[in-house]
Design a protein around this nucleic acid. Structure first.
Length: 428
RNA sequence: GGAGGAAUACCCAAGUGGUUGAAGGGGGCGGUUUCGAAAACCGCUAGGAGUUGCAAGGCUCGCGCGGGUUCAAAUCCUGCUUCCUCCGCCA
């Protein structure tokens, strides 16, 4: 959400930003906001004036009552009543105008960072760099579920029976690997100085509507029946929710958190063939990172955050590339975003395993996350990034560390978490 | 889950319809005194949002949150949240 002052003072800048995102249908919103805002301020000024009159007359009534001058008091009451209708009419326009302004402001996208490449959609995202050799194996790499089944590590049939499509039983070494990766990710981030957090896995509707749009809510969130609670789709929801309507002392910044949570998503909508297995599921687990910082530091943190994910994947011998989202593929709240993609030796292409975003002050303004410092009050910058989200990440892990005999190499950092095992051997 | 009680500013706390847009105390800040400090004394201290104005400033909103009653709400009604005490249940 933009500062309405930017829209007032620099509508052309806002429109140019909309054009860069190929959302020309939203151009009209800018002028609508300006018109509604003018109307609102007129109504407010007038209503404030009437309220001031009413307040002073009411005070007078109080004094008159105290002096037992009933008649004068009643005469004054009549004066207030005379303007009551005008005031209530004005008041009934104030709120709807404010709602209409807000509803439009929410649709106007955040100003994109000047470094963001201009493009219509994800086909125009720009590869920034690759790290690690994207190996093409000398043998056929099986589908990830087949690799897991060889290790006796997954049971999707039972999961479908018990919970339905989009769930899984991970078992044995694969389940342990899943936990090992999360534990390693947690310690990896703690070593980087982040604070480990386990947040609530359910949040109130108030928080849900704060942190996401209505359509996101419809398409993602599971509601608990009979309760005002939703299962989180990512720990970012509860982690950013933590800061709603707060004023932070400047010297407390930055907050650098790494949070663990299971994530629940409805995943409404059709998905392609490569999204089967444990690629796109209703339940997964994720180690996340969240930073709340001063505006001048957010770009620095952005770089640090996605590079940390790259380092994490590299420490597990998985080749990755960093793909920068172009203007058209950038969600409205984001100023800049990159996807970290892992190499799939089976598909011989990279696929998304994490996403790093700088929301600048847009999320903070929407949620009223403010900082008070020497220079006065201002909105914080917020960023979020995936450290790792298994079981999707397991796909990349298993494919990259797979040997021809079906065994899986365990990279050094994970061995501590895997009881010292250097390799997983097929069970069948 | 049930029954009671509570929520007021940085902290404690008074306040049950009208010069309370919030007493009093503590703390903080400034001053007097002092070589310096302590003590004492004097003064200031509501954080925030919006709006208006060139500015100084004005106005509106604001007593956990949301509605309502009233000319007027911290105060009355109502829904919710959180905390405390007790009971029940439970990893």
């Amino acid at each position: 959400m933009l500062d309405i002052n930017v829209v007032r003072k620099n509508p052309e800048l806002v429109k140019e930003n909309i054009r860069k995102k190929f959302q020309d249908h939203k151009l009209a919103l800018v002028d609508e906001v300006i018109a509604l805002d003018t109307q609102y301020r007129q109504a407010k000024t007038k209503a404030d004036d009437l309220r001031a009159q009413r307040n002073s007359l009411s005070k007078k009534i109080g004094v008159l009552m105290g002096q037992e001058k009933k008649d004068e008091a009643n005469a004054t009451k009549a004066l207030v009543n005379a303007m009551a209708k005008e005031l209530s009419d004005l008041e009934s326009t104030e709120e709807p105008l404010l709602d209409q302004i807000k509803q439009r402001m929410m649709q106007i996208p955040n100003l994109i960072d000047p470094t963001v490449p201009i493009g219509k959609d994800d086909s125009e995202n720009v590869e920034r760099y690759r790290v690690g050799e994207a190996v093409i194996k000398s043998f056929d790499v099986p589908y990830h579920i087949d690799i897991m089944e060889k290790l006796a590590g997954v049971d999707l049939d039972a999961a479908r029976k018990v919970a339905g499509n989009g769930f899984y039983y991970l078992m044995g070494d694969v389940a342990r690997l899943h936990s090992a990766i999360l534990s390693f990710a947690r310690d990896f981030m703690i070593d980087k100085g982040f604070t480990y957090v386990i947040p609530p896995f359910m949040i109130r509707s108030e928080v849900v509507t704060g942190v996401m749009s209505f359509s996101e809510m419809e398409n993602m969130m599971y509601k608990i029946e009979g309760e005002d609670l939703y299962l989180i789709g990512t720990s970012e929801h509860s982690m950013i929710g933590k800061f709603i309507d707060t004023i932070i002392e400047e010297d407390q910044l930055p907050y650098t958190y790494t949070s663990y949570s299971p994530c629940f998503r409805k995943e409404v909508g059709a998905h392609g063939i490569e999204e089967r297995g444990v690629y796109r599921i209703h339940q997964f687990e994720k180690q996340e990172m969240i930073v709340v910082c001063k505006p001048e530091d957010s770009q620095k943190w952005f770089e640090f955050m996605y590079k940390t994910t790259v380092d994490f994947f590299r420490s597990l011998d998985i080749p990755v590339r960093v793909l920068e989202c172009c203007s058209g593929d950038l969600a409205d709240l984001k100023s800049k975003s990159v996807d970290v993609e892992a190499w799939s030796p089976r598909q011989q292409k990279y696929f998304e395993v994490g996403s790093c975003s700088n929301l600048t002050d847009a999320q903070a303004r929407r949620l009223q996350i403010r900082v008070t410092g020497k220079e006065g009050k201002y909105f914080a910058h917020t960023l979020n990034n995936t450290v790792v989200a298994p079981p999707r990440m397991l796909i990349a892990f298993l494919e990259n560390n797979l040997n021809e005999d079906g065994s899986i190499n365990i990279p050094l950092p994970l061995r501590l978490y895997m009881g010292g095992k250097e390799v997983l051997t097929p069970k069948k």
